[in-house]
């Protein structure tokens, strides 16, 4: 307890406890809320706070990438996609036996943590690409990324290109037709099918 209080009054400790408290609450809202807009807003603000973790940890470049890619690009993509769905409607989900899901989720997460933590002897880990003193994080990251991780970097670039083309092709189909009109047509088809079934 004293240890906790002492760490709370350092800058790093205070920031850590504040960020972790807020991210846990925000992501809990994301997972539990029945409203898409609430879930998306809390997810976006949780991601901003996670970039705060990265800045505390000295991974400046990673924090900036988190802000640009996640908060800027991914959440913007989600909000564009939400224009296609009815976002104001409350989501009705049939949840059968929530307690079982809680117990299963907690247990499997614990099992995963144990599985990955058990074989690691922390003394035997040594830095493969150590950080350099007096060199900025972005420069350090750049040197390692463009020498040791060049091929994965290029593959990731090609993968992003493929994802972009796939997104355009999938979402761009029948973009000139109105969704609500199509839904009316679908409803009409459903009624015809029902009549057939009754016959």
């Amino acid at each position: 307890m004293e240890n906790f209080l002492a760490s709370l009054f350092t800058f790093q400790g205070f920031a850590f406890y504040l960020f972790s408290f807020l991210t846990v609450i925000l992501f809990w809202i994301t997972v539990m809320s029945n409203n898409v807009l609430y879930a998306m807003t809390s997810l976006a603000s949780g991601m901003v706070l996670i970039s705060g973790f990265f800045f505390i940890l000295g991974a400046d470049f990673l924090g900036v990438v988190q802000l640009i890619v996640y908060v800027g690009a991914v959440m913007a993509l989600y909000s564009f996609a939400m224009m296609f769905f009815d976002a104001t409607r409350e989501i009705k989900e049939k949840n059968t036996n929530g307690a079982v899901v809680f117990v299963l989720g907690g247990l499997s997460a614990l099992m995963l943590v144990l599985m990955f933590a058990a074989p690691i002897h922390s003394e035997s880990i040594q830095a493969l690409y150590p950080m350099h003193e007096g060199v900025g994080n972005a420069q350090d990251v750049g040197i390692v990324l463009f020498t040791k991780y060049l091929i994965p970097f290029e593959v990731a670039a090609v993968m992003l290109l493929v994802a972009m083309i796939a997104g355009i092709i999938l979402a761009g189909k029948k973009m000139d037709q109105s969704l609500t009109e199509m839904m009316d047509e679908d409803a009409g088809e459903d009624e015809i099918l029902k009549q057939k079934d009754e016959k």
């Binding site: 993509l77 992003l160 796939a166 999938l170």
Partner: peptide, 15 residues
Amino acid sequence: IAIAASEVAVGLGIL
């Protein structure tokens, strides 16, 4: 992060 971004792009198209 790169994989998550491409996953979101393709996944939202499918959605």
